[in-house]
Design a binder for these strands. Structure first.
Lengths: 158, 158
DNA sequence: TATTGTTATACTCTATAACTATA
DNA sequence: TATAGTTATAGAGTATAACAATA
């Protein structure tokens, strides 16, 4: 068993644990000045990142959750005026979910606060290390997702 | 707003999303040949990493959760024979939680499967990149945790 | 009186199944 | 008949509060 690899996984596990704490989310939403639960924030920021309206199914796929989960939060966010549902002109079954001005504003604040928090934590890193972190994390994200897909495909075939 | 930094955060978010999927946990436990939920696995592997018995409070602190959560899962794992509770000889209020042979075995399989999965995903990386990943992830984990502590302290003072 | 752990309870997050409407 | 989305339901995960026993 590779010793370095074990350390990498341990560090990663620690990181995920910290991110998932309720207190971490509370700190970020307080700083962003919003009262939104985690799925709410994920959906809003996803729409902001997408740069335009998206279907419920596309949001669910992007966030890797099932669509009923998205439906419930979209309904709640619509009631609060943070996004709107518009009939898809090309498919009568589908909806396009779009951020309102207020929703885009909240999403932008959440995203900014997160990036700032992350940035502050590594602010004293050498520039080269920060660049490497970006390159390696992106690569890791891609490779781990692809690898997981094939593993999941394997076990479902069996 | 730093463009590289945004990319780093986006990659990181994607990674956390993938890790947290129910299917990912299902794939890993199937490969390890165990039927344990996520908190169960976390507690067992934590005890294995610790290298010896630990108190409920210490486990809770290590996993960054509240102690009642640990109590419930420890009780269930004890009933299943994967760990034992022993009175702390130095403090009558406390318990030392220890892995049984079977528990240590299950923990080792879970940990090994996770590390192997992770390792397989980056198996074709250059050696230098893997070393850098380990170094940078460890540093990131430390810095993000420390930085979060100070942020949490700030907001609770206010 | 402070601390360790447990019990009781409730809330958050997410999945599955059954259904409706359109394609 | 297949697909997009919704409604209904259930389960996993975690926190808070109240309590017990010991320090």
């Amino acid at each position: 068993m590779d010793e370095d690899l074990s350390k990498t996984v341990a560090a990663f596990r620690q990181l995920v644990t910290t991110i998932n704490r309720a207190k971490t989310h509370g700190m970020l939403t307080e700083a962003a000045g919003v009262q939104l639960d985690r799925p709410d924030v994920q959906i809003l920021v996803h729409l902001l990142d997408a740069g335009g309206p998206r279907r419920v199914g596309a949001i669910a796929e992007g966030l890797q959750v099932e669509s009923p989960h998205v439906t419930r939060h979209v309904s709640s966010l619509e009631r609060r005026g943070l996004l709107t549902r518009v009939k898809d002109p090309e498919d009568g079954r589908a909806w396009q979910i779009a951020l309102t001005e207020e929703g885009a504003d909240a999403a932008a604040r959440c995203r900014r606060v997160t990036v700032e928090w992350f940035g502050a934590a590594i602010s004293d890193w050498p520039v080269a290390d920060r660049a490497e972190l970006q390159r390696l994390l992106s690569k890791l994200s891609d490779d781990l997702c692809v690898h997981l897909q094939s593993r999941l495909a394997d076990s479902s075939v069996r």
